[in-house]
Design a protein around this nucleic acid. Structure first.
Lengths: 267, 267
DNA sequence: TTGCTCCTCACGTCACGTGAGGTGGC
DNA sequence: TTGCTCCTCACGTCACGTGAGGTGGC
């Protein structure tokens, strides 16, 4: 016979766990010395201990382990149990995979935003823009009221989205109240549905500026970009684009760190 | 302002959870009516509630959520946290995958044993056996003492194992005490090491019988098989093989259900 | 008065780990 | 006597859910 400490070393189960299993009736010592309460285990019970360990490795809950060891005596009878248990574990894996997928997305997004935030410091850039397929809604109203349009676009075409959302401004000048705006998201594929147009947004040469900060102060950035164009006698087209590279996040909205690209296509 | 029930509907957080978050200081109502203890939430706090929900979806523990919401104000600062959290989730996935792998193995094994147990009822079968590569240890002793040899074989070649273990008996007659035995496991590849021989076990025509039950009574099965050979004037070779199709399992050992194949190669 | 919403305890979950405080045998 | 092993509580973990028992406003 072994004392609890010896039995613990033999089986690899902690003393605390052995006492707990005794309490639960899962692994009862062969003898308990009355006055002292010392537990003594015989070598024959080692098999049961090993069985418990094996089932624990398969993440079977203790209660089920108890039932299994007491009601069955052959592994074949456990087939249906194992199959069921396996599907359950598989669904846990699926859940976790969903979580890693979300985390990956957030991580990638933040990484991008960070490099963008570090590289460009308010410098105007000339670049070539590819033609994009977009899903869009055209509406009139105030700048910054694109929320409803955006959520409509994402609920209809979100699964095909392949880039950052943007607003296209059709007015020549700043309009506070009744601006002519097209809110759009780039998509991989799709066709128009009632209320939403799918179309190509032509590419070409453009000047662009990344602005960091709250939307209220974006006027400065427009100033910088129009000045740049005027100085170099570049003609730009309407609509101009305002691309939301980084807006309010899932968790925080911190306008100081918003990144917005202003893009003027050149004629 | 909303009552707790209204706020619960808006956010999708249960009333119980809202009270719990209040206790923990994670989501404190804007006002608590003194005499009644009624909690009242303002619409502005909905954002915080949503942030909590998002972080919970990523399986971030509540305490960490509290720290995040109170100490950070931009998602970029969370990058390292998210990365670390991601690796942790990934390791959980790895653990669970290990479990499903073990379960799959057990399930497959038991399924095989079950069909085997149902199809063959003590019927002698003539069959062709393929040549096998085996790792083996030859020793002398009692039938049934192959445990040590087996564990040595598995610890050296277990990762290349590709079939059930077997004993080869070199004695012409039953020997109780000092039998000449070679214990072997089929392997995919490998070369001899000190104490363990790797060699080919030649295939060919054979007669075989599957026996179900404890090892002590396997003598009957030998009788059946030798009788079959004698009646048909078939000559069989030494060593004969005893293949352990199903022995004691990880959890149970139930000798009544052991499946052992006796295999006599024909000359 | 009846229903509904809200409140505060207290307890349970799961498998132990972590002390605290004490005993028994070499 | 000192160390070591063993014992029994009691409490903590994690994020609430489940009652029980009671109150407040329409």
């Amino acid at each position: 016979v072994y004392s609890i400490g010896e039995f613990s070393k033999i089986t690899g189960i902690t003393v605390k766990a052995l006492r707990f299993y005794h309490d639960k009736g899962l692994l009862v010592p062969d003898r308990v010395h009355e006055p002292s309460g010392y537990r003594y285990y015989s070598p024959t019970i080692v098999t049961r201990a090993r069985a418990i360990l094996h089932l624990k490795e398969m993440m079977v809950p203790l209660e089920a382990i108890g039932e299994i060891l007491d009601s069955y005596d052959d592994e074949a009878d456990l087939l249906s149990f194992f199959i069921q248990h396996r599907t359950q574990i598989a669904s846990q894996i699926a859940t976790l995979r969903g979580v890693t997928a979300s985390l990956d997305q957030i991580i990638a997004q933040e990484r991008k935003a960070q490099t963008m935030s570090n590289c460009n410091d308010f410098e105007v850039e000339e670049k070539d823009v590819d033609t994009l397929l977009i899903a869009s809604i055209r509406w009139r109203g105030k700048y910054g009221d694109c929320g409803k349009a955006l959520s409509a676009l994402y609920s209809a075409f979100g699964r095909y989205a392949c880039g950052k959302p943007m607003d296209l401004y059709f007015d020549e000048d700043h309009k506070d109240d009744d601006a002519d705006i097209e809110t759009a998201i780039p998509i991989r594929k799709g066709t128009s549905v009632p209320g939403i147009t799918v179309r190509e947004l032509p590419g070409g040469k453009a000047i662009s500026l990344i602005y960091k900060g709250p939307y209220e102060l974006i006027g400065q950035a427009y100033g910088t970009l129009t000045l740049y164009a005027r100085e170099r006698q570049l003609n730009y087209l309407v609509p101009v684009r305002q691309i939301y590279r980084k807006g309010p996040g899932l968790i925080f909205k911190n306008p100081k760190n918003y990144l917005t690209e202003l893009l003027f296509m050149l004629s």
